[in-house]
């Protein structure tokens, strides 16, 4: 789907004096499942916010030749960068199909927007199958389970034809089986796309990551394969004492 890579260099984000992210550099390539981990408040979500234009940042975030920083949110999306949110955000009053239809609709002409939908796009069928939501086509998104909402979000990215998928804690609050299913899903879709997963859950990371970047207090603490990162004494120090909590995968949704 794409050969371009996502290259983040020297990223820095400041919130009225408080430096949330500084000097962060990493890259992600198609075919790998790239992980961004770190304790609560490390700046993981802020990195994604910066790449997707939600917060102002300095440094550089390039997708292939294109600089993303400084562009408007919807323009960055149109360059092929999609994201999910820590708290699943789907259109609750609309059905699964309607959610996906909107995600697929960015290329439609204004005139076609004024018509009712007939049938289902092939890309939507495919995404439904991929995420196991085929049976929920007509279900209002608001009554989906938590895990299903996260999958719907991923499905929306798929029909949106995103080249880069930035997933913010996709397995938070999921059951063991749902986590495994999500991991498999992420691995499958990463074959042809750039996938960056922000996670808290070390177990999940160990099973599915190809390369890992560890953030701590807004800076890169360590970078490498799962084994390399785990062997890093600095990483062990940061996670010491909290390791148990992290292994259980406490969803850090309290930080909203």
């Amino acid at each position: 789907m794409t050969d371009a890579s996502l290259v983040v260099t020297n990223l820095r984000v400041e919130f009225s004096g408080f430096v949330a992210v500084s000097g962060v550099s990493f890259d992600a390539h198609p075919g790998e499942v790239r992980f961004l981990i770190g304790p609560n408040g490390a700046g993981k979500t802020t990195c994604i916010d910066a790449i997707t234009g939600l917060v102002r940042a300095t440094g550089s975030a390039r997708l292939g030749e294109k600089e993303l920083l400084g562009q408007q949110v919807h323009r960055i999306v149109r360059l092929g960068v999609g994201r999910t949110f820590q708290t699943a955000s789907v259109f609750e009053e609309l059905t699964v199909l309607q959610n996906l239809d909107i995600a697929a609709g960015r290329h439609r002409t204004p005139a076609s927007l004024l018509r009712a939908r007939r049938g289902t796009d092939a890309s939507i069928e495919q995404a439904l199958e991929e995420t196991g939501l085929t049976g929920e086509l007509a279900t209002p998104a608001g009554i989906l389970s938590h895990g299903q909402k996260q999958w719907l979000e991923i499905a929306m990215l798929l029909v949106q034809d995103a080249k880069v998928l930035l997933l913010d804690e996709p397995v938070a609050g999921m059951s063991h089986d749902e986590r495994a299913a999500t991991g498999d899903l992420v691995q499958r879709i990463a074959a042809k796309r750039i996938v960056l997963v922000v996670e808290h859950d070390m177990d999940f990371m160990r099973r599915f990551a190809t390369r890992v970047t560890v953030l701590h207090q807004g800076k890169v603490l360590s970078q490498g394969t799962v084994a390399e990162v785990q062997a890093d004494p600095q990483v062990q120090e940061v996670y010491l004492g909290t390791a148990d909590a992290i292994a259980v995968g406490t969803p850090n949704r309290t930080e909203v």
Partner: peptide, 25 residues
Amino acid sequence: LYRSRFGELLVATRDAEERVRFLGY
């Protein structure tokens, strides 16, 4: 309008404007 795709998009915008932005609209 309500049964059109625009109508669905309008409801989506009403309920989650930021999310709509992140779909490229």
